[in-house]
Amino acid sequence: MVGNIIAITVQDFTYAYPNHSAVLQEINFEVRKSEMVGIIGPNGAGKSTLCKSLNGLIPHFYGGSIAGSVTVADMDTMKHSVAELSLKVGLVFQEPSNQFSGVSTKVDEEVAFGMSMMGYPREEMRPRIEEALHAVGLQGLEERSPYELSGGQQQRLAIATVLAVRPEIIVMDEPTAQLDPVGKTEVFQTMRDLNGKGYTIIVAEHEIEAMAAFADRILVLDHAEIVTQGETRKVLNEVKKLKQMGIDPPSVTELCEILRGELKIDEGKFPIELNEAISLFSRVLREHAK
């Protein structure tokens, strides 16, 4: 699915909020169309700021000083308005209630809200609402109040409001941080479905096991800089580096780093998911038992 078309290019990007020191330093990365990229790192590292830089809220809404460039769907974020950018890239916040308009009393009205602000004709809105609610699995709940939904449903509604505009790229800033395990699973599943449909997805997350399962690549941010980036397995295998930053890799990966001597496997080949670890250790223990 992932081709060579570039969806996002961030080049030598440095940013500081007004009257503050830089919260992003010399950031460089590319995202290809239909990739799912995870951004991990401690709170305060710059993850949220980076997310807001991808849809133009930075610099247009927040101001501040900038060096370098951010290009999203062939648009330089400096030269295009948030309204123009929002047609191509949608941002989902940590708190679904921050995303809601606060004026809609029904789920379908909430999905329509963004489009009506953008002046979409009524007849075009209906099929888009249906499509967006279907994509996040909320069909049938059109008449409910957004505030009567569970946490996971609210976050999926927030995603639907973004989808209705039919963007190519969806950026999510810790979308599961406030959710219970059922809600987290719902949102990760939705993310995976959308990625399967070809959406490019960038997600800032602390849920490392979910990232191990879903992300094609991972960027690690610490103290305003990208400390490491690459294919998910490669990054999550850098156990010592991650632990130094206060990031816990998946438990099974950490275990392999500790048992490196006994296992005789190299960093870069450690399992990052439970099933891989089960087959590795079953094999090792079976051979030792002989």
Binding site: S251, V252, S282, L285, R286, A289
Partner: peptide
Amino acid sequence: PQITELAHSLTRYNVPASILTVTEMADALQ
């Protein structure tokens, strides 16, 4: 926890099912 699930899958090789942490698991396997 993931590490406990791993332990459960390896009980036939004498890994204790009661493991709760990465450190306990590393000790048991060692």
